[in-house]
Design a protein around this nucleic acid. Structure first.
Lengths: 210, 210
DNA sequence: TGATTTTTCCGAATTGAATCCGAACAAGCG
DNA sequence: CGCTTGTTCGGATTCAATTCGGAAAAATCA
């Protein structure tokens, strides 16, 4: 039965364990990350891990949650800036920020994210999808003419999924066929062209109705 | 030292082990899939696993390779049909075939694919990327006017990644915001609009040059 | 065919990592 | 200070992965 920490001392060990988890996972990979290792890096006895975590998996879970929380915290403050930009610039900016974020701390997050995704694909990613949907909604509000385009939910779904996984895959690829800039430019152009084309079609439709 | 099977009997056990791996993994998930389990389902002694596989991971690896091989075998014969279709219909068809393929055998592949991806993200996926690139190249050849659009490599990269991961995520999502048809329609429209818009821009450019 | 070699199969024994547990240590509190 | 509660620890335990040595089956040979 894992307990919740009451004293600062205990909260510090929990933090140290999670931090050690990130370090061990990024250094050795998931298979070679043992409880002894995590404990050693955290400067803590093995038994202590089980005071606050059900098992090793639970440590990975809160690591995953913390990663998503940090990602959301990184994106949220960008919203006001993004909604003021042209769509293609906004997408490029967002992708580059995400890239830099993943490469922080010697790529620690990037190295961890694949394994984290494997542990649970749907659960922890949710807040990230929510905040990105929020960004999109605000964008649409700030550009009312875009509200008439079709398939907004589908485009959001595709754009978010495509964006996240394309970036992660690209950064993980030792020999990518295209540069990161080409990737970002491509995604931006794809969405940009979609919107342009939709607006034209709507316009033509409106004209033919009068 | 794992050996390679010489006799038919041995090849049958190897097959049974891999098959059992798929069954165990889809029934119990990666964490609960033990070597005893796999051996039991395969109707084989535990020791036999290690006759032909370095370790448990190696079993998962050939499962992953077999999955990709089956996927490629599913896609390849579709190529001639796909290249004759309008782009949006081609994309919808491909996505639906992929969906049906993943849901075969009571969703066995779908249940396995997440874990398989985690084990190695880049290596085994390669043949799938190759065959999809091949499909795209043939498509472009069959529709010469599309050869003048820009960012073809980036679009292929984004389309393939976006397509694969969007489908897997959607099928894994217990409560998706959009239907599968909306997803497929969205991807088709996104690419379709991109091409339309590009062709228009190329055309305008050509006209202004004369 | 019978002998010999190679291949295959097995499951008890070993190994090592994950997890448990109870003693020892610190903090808050009267 | 005694008492209760929270915290830490690392040896003991458990359980899955892997090894090993020999028995059974098939292939090859004389």
């Amino acid at each position: 039965m894992p307990r919740t920490p009451r004293q600062d001392r205990a909260r510090a060990t929990v933090d140290a364990i999670v931090e050690a988890g990130f370090i061990a996972l990024s250094q050795r990979g998931p298979a070679a990350t043992t409880t002894r290792h995590i404990a050693e890096i955290a400067g803590v006895g093995v038994g202590s891990l089980y005071e606050y975590f059900e098992n090793k998996e639970a440590i990975f879970n809160v690591m995953s949650q913390r990663f998503i929380k940090d990602t959301v915290a990184m994106i949220k403050p960008l919203t006001p800036t993004l909604v003021r930009m042209p769509i293609d610039a906004a997408i490029r900016t967002l992708l580059n920020e995400f890239k830099d974020f993943l490469e922080m701390n010697d790529g620690r997050y990037l190295k961890c994210v694949r394994h984290a995704m494997a542990v649970d694909f749907e659960l922890h990613l949710d807040p990230l999808f929510q905040v990105l949907n929020e960004v999109i909604m605000r964008y649409l509000m700030s550009h009312p003419e875009t509200l008439q385009i079709r398939r907004i939910p589908a485009m959001a779904y595709i754009g978010i999924n495509g964006g996240i996984f394309a970036v992660i895959r690209h950064l993980s690829d030792p020999d990518p066929m295209i540069s990161f800039d080409e990737l970002a430019d491509g995604l931006a152009a794809m969405i940009g062209h979609y919107i342009t084309q939709e607006l034209k079609e709507r316009e033509a439709l409106a004209a033919s109705e009068t």
